[in-house]
Amino acid sequence: MAQYVINQMDTFHGDVSFIGIPYEAFERTGHWSLWGVVRMFEAARLIGLYNGLFYYKSMEGKGIGLVVITQAVRLSPDLHRDYSLFKTLKQRYVLDIVEVGRRSFSFVTRLTNEETGQFLGEILLKYVLIDRSTRKSIPLPEAFLEKYSKHTKKEIKFRKLSIPSCPDMGKNVFKLKVLPLHSDTDRNNHVNQSGYFRFCIDCATDAALAGNYRHFTSDMCWYPVLEMNVYHANESLVNEELVVNTWQDNEDFRLIFFIIKRKDTVLFKASFLFYPEMSKRKRNSRM
C-alpha cells in the first residue's frame, strides 16, 4: 500500500490522504490511467473499511468478501490533464456511508488535491457481501442492520447515464476478445473491478483506430473520462474468454457504451462520457 495518513475515521465517515501516485497507475501516455484512478479509490475505501468504517473488519470472515455491483463516477478533466509522471499530488479522499440495505451498502468517495482543495473526482459505489465458497450474495448481519437502520440517506448528485442494450447486428458495434490472467484477479479470485475499465479503454482504442467512432480516431488513453455509470452483473474468472462490445451514441459523440460478455452471459455494462479534447503531452513526463 502506498504511504497514507488517516485524518479521521468513524463508522459513517472517513478521511484519508495519500502522498504521491504509484508508478503503475500511469499508462502509456504518461497520464494517470482510468483503471489506476479507480484502483486508488478502491485503496481509499479498503483503508476505511479496515480501520473502523462500517465496522467491516469485525464482519469479514475467511469465507466472506466484498463485491462491487454498481458505480456512478464523476471525474474532473484536470485529473488526467494535470497529473502526469513526475508531478506530485497529495490526494485526499473523503468517504461517507450514504445508504444501507439488507444485502448491500453504498457510500460516496470524494477526491481532492489536499494542498489546493481542487475537486478531482467522486464515486458513488454499492457493495454486497458474498460467500466466497458459493459465490452468492448474503444478507448483512442483523446487528449491523439494527445499528444502521436509522441512518438517513444523504443527498446524492450524480447524473444517470443510460446503458442501452447492445445492438444485435451492424458495423457500428466493435468487438474485442480478451483473456483475463491471474494478474487480473484480486482477493476474491475473480477479475478486479479496475480490470474491466482497462478492457474497455483497450477496446475503445482499437475501435477508434479502426474508424468505428465519430470524432475519436486515435489512442483513447489521451481523452479524459468525465462520467461513467457501471453495472457489474456477474464475475469473471481466470482464463475465461471475454468479448468486449462497444458502440457510440447516435446523438452525443462523447458518449460511448460497453458491454462485456462471457459467451451469452453479460458480466459488465457501462456508459462512458469522454472529454472531446486530448490531454496535452507533458514535457517533464518525456512522453
Rank of each mutant, 00 (worst) to 15 (best):
P22N: 01
T88M: 07
K150G: 14
I97E: 03
A204W: 10
L273V: 11
T112Q: 12
D206T: 06
V68R: 04
N229K: 11
Y196R: 00
H182Y: 13
V173W: 04
D202H: 07
Q193L: 05
R198D: 10
E122Q: 15
S104T: 14
F274K: 00
T88L: 05
S106C: 09
S106V: 00
M220P: 01
L95M: 13
E251G: 10
K150Y: 02
V191T: 10
M169P: 07
P224K: 10
E227V: 02
M40G: 02
V128L: 08
I97K: 08
F12K: 07
G52W: 06
F26M: 03
S149C: 04
A233H: 13
S162W: 14
N172S: 15
F158I: 07
I259N: 03
I138Q: 13
I163W: 06
E146M: 11
F119K: 03
M228D: 02
F253E: 12
S183N: 15
K280L: 10
L111M: 15
K150E: 11
R74D: 12
S285Y: 12
N234L: 04
G61E: 08
E155S: 14
R28P: 12
F41N: 09
I138K: 02
R45V: 10
I156C: 08
D131G: 09
T265H: 09
Q248I: 06
Y93H: 04
A72T: 02
K136F: 06
E122C: 05
T109W: 07
C166W: 04
E115R: 07
A25H: 00
L46E: 08
R286G: 14
Y275K: 15
S149Y: 02
D249N: 08
F272K: 00
K282P: 08
N189E: 05
E251Q: 14
T11P: 10
F197Y: 03
R132V: 04
P77D: 15
D15E: 06
E235A: 00
V68N: 00
T185D: 09
V244Q: 03
S279F: 00
F268E: 06
T70P: 07
T217W: 02
Q91M: 14
S58N: 15
E240T: 13
R103C: 14
T185S: 08
S106W: 01
P224R: 10
G30E: 14
R135M: 13
M220A: 03
G170T: 00
R262F: 00
S285I: 13
P180V: 08
N212W: 09
V191I: 04
I256A: 04
R254D: 13
V73S: 03
F216C: 06
T11A: 14
D202V: 09
Q8H: 13
D78H: 05
R102P: 04
L237I: 10
R283S: 09
R92W: 01
K269I: 07
Q248G: 11
R187P: 02
L49I: 02
L49M: 01
C221F: 07
